[in-house]
Design a protein around this nucleic acid. Sequence first.
DNA 1: TAAAAAATCCCCATTTAAGGGGATAGCCAC
DNA 2: GTGGCTATCCCCTTAAATGGGGATTTTTTA
Lengths: 215, 215
Amino acid sequence: MIRVLVVDDHQVLIDGVKALFENDADINIQAEALTGKQAVEIACSDEIDAILLDINLPDISGFEVCKTVKERKPEIKIIALTMHSEAGYISKMIKYKVDGYLLKNAGKEKMFEAIKAVMVGDKFFSKEVTDSLITGMHQPRKPKTSDFIQKLTKREKEILHLIIEEYTTDEIASELFIASTTVITHRKSLLRKLSAKNTAGLVKAAYEFGLLKSN
Amino acid sequence: MIRVLVVDDHQVLIDGVKALFENDADINIQAEALTGKQAVEIACSDEIDAILLDINLPDISGFEVCKTVKERKPEIKIIALTMHSEAGYISKMIKYKVDGYLLKNAGKEKMFEAIKAVMVGDKFFSKEVTDSLITGMHQPRKPKTSDFIQKLTKREKEILHLIIEEYTTDEIASELFIASTTVITHRKSLLRKLSAKNTAGLVKAAYEFGLLKSN
DNA sequence: TAAAAAATCCCCATTTAAGGGGATAGCCAC
DNA sequence: GTGGCTATCCCCTTAAATGGGGATTTTTTA
């Protein structure tokens, strides 16, 4: 019996998935979570084999959930649930070692296939998603502002702007009349929230997520 | 007499243009607008022959203004005013049937030339803009020092791409099967050529100079 | 072919960034 | 009035990047 955690901010989707596997012999929807933090908590404490994970969550991003869970419990398999419009994020998810991708409108068979595949260590990427990735690469990214940017606090945006202007941590501290340790803390938050690994990732995220237009 | 509408969110630029053509025999700055909506309104109601149009407007973008005006009054000629960093948008503007393209620091003669050209149905794209488009980069952001244009080598572009993808120096070295010291050398060249102070500046330059499209 | 440019490698040293913690005070909402 | 978030500050340690040199080989090009 494969014990699955379903994570999505819409209860209706969770209920739908639960209904699909209600009397399934192999797959049991053991737990559910509406937020990223809840998801991490459940994944780390409960006995979970796999996660069906939405990318857009109200608190922390699916990227971060994926990263955290894989760090603490690498044996847990993670399948991302995405919509077409998010297909551009796929490459990012791969970096965080997600095991599979599904479109949200995938049927039971598709989900079953995906879960079985990742449980034996395979990767599963639905054709629809990879198609979106390939075609999405040719057309310019839509300048719609991502949720990730909007989740940044005022101070964090301020600091991100200064980072882009090539200010070092110490220079930012002087500019804002705060301690450099505080700036370091904010930088850590930015890296976490934007799922970036370093300064280059922060600047990249700022451009691609449209920070420079909205603010 | 050619009746011109000047659109820019900075009053100072509008005033500058007005001053340039104050007593001109052929060109009359008939109207001005600080926002996109205002611009569309004036263009459609007043007697206007040509528009000098900024791309970055507070409400709707210059692209939208261009599109709307051309739909309603195709006989009005539109010349886009842009800064270097926006030169990559030229192809987009062409799609919206803009008639000309000028840098914001263009002088009176250049503007005069452009207006005259578009009024007889010609297109006018200032050399500086098309140069930026063709070579993909160029133009130091701080034109104070030498205006010697140094373009990046293939290897440098390659490494810059990997930096943007959040690779560290060591990871780049592994990826390209070269020593990390070599990557460091290339990074130094990139910092020098792009007048950047750090990694953030490299990523910023890549986005603003359009390096991501050429390669 | 000779000069220039590109690509490769290394040394030194210093500065900056990142990752792991933890802590306190204020503010707002439930 | 507790819980969550923001913003502030600190510790320690390691990783990564920068700045200054110098050097060789290959490739391009004038």
